[in-house]
Amino acid sequence: MPEYIIETKNLTKKYGTQKSVASLNIHVQKGRIYGLLGRNGAGKTTTMKMLLGLTAPTSGEIKIWGKSLHGNEKKTLSRIGSLIESPGFYPNLTGTENLRIFATLRGVPNNHAIEDALNLVGLPYKDKKLFSQYSLGMKQRLAIALAVMHDPELLILDEPINGLDPIGIAEVRSFIRQLCDERGKTILISSHILSEISLLADDIGIIDHGALLDEESLARLEQKSNKHIHFTLSNTAQAARILELQFKENQFSILDDHNLQVHNLAIPVSGMITAFVENGLEVSEAHTCEESLEDYFKRITGGEGIA
């Protein structure tokens, strides 16, 4: 039984009559990166806000480090670093001054914490530039610095790469990876960009219209989503019988009278074709299909373009 840092049970949030998050059960394991993937408006931000106590769930339960969040906010939140939606800072202060305010309120003891955090995200320490003069990417970097400044054990990052340039994205990706691999941090990250999540996450939760459609490790998901052998032949019922009797195989699906997919790639294609033909079937087409993670994602969210 893996150790869950975050666990939700039937977590639900209603705004009016609309359910933004519906009976969500997510499981974030210790020392892993969990990617919450969903289209715009899927409920990623709402979920994260509930995990941070920023908004109260309508129903359901949140457990962080095995304890209910409700009633333990003070202890729990001080061990979490977070970034929710757009960066929020005081425009009349510099980045360093902004961080100093939050460090003071958090009681961060280490004097170098601010400098280290800024170094990590590639912003200058004690720069004169005010937050209002920052570029979008700089603002996002400052928000990431705020999230990691107090060396939290758990990071909750809502679309952390928003507004970053490709080099910035790669940098952030590699240091999130580092935080996880080298310092054992647990990270929950959300994104609507599949490729980003698949590059970074160990586990993926796919959320759509507030509901969790799938929760798997990336490896399992890739297996699940991808390859199969597609046959177009004269009689799928008979072909199915051949697969069951001759190949002892039941991992296949019948699409219609003439189309059939075999999910077990271990069986040689030529062997199956020979068997079909010997039994009097006409095989007009056989090919290996590779469904990308993206196709899979599109399929289960029932939607058009996402990535």
Binding site: L52, L54, I80, G88, R106, L146
Partner: peptide, 17 residues
């Protein structure tokens, strides 16, 4: 109004304050 205007309330609430 400032915490709301600058969206800093969430940072404060997460400390938590």
């Amino acid at each position: 109004f400032e915490e709301h205007d600058h969206d800093t309330l969430k940072n404060l609430m997460c400390i938590p304050v």
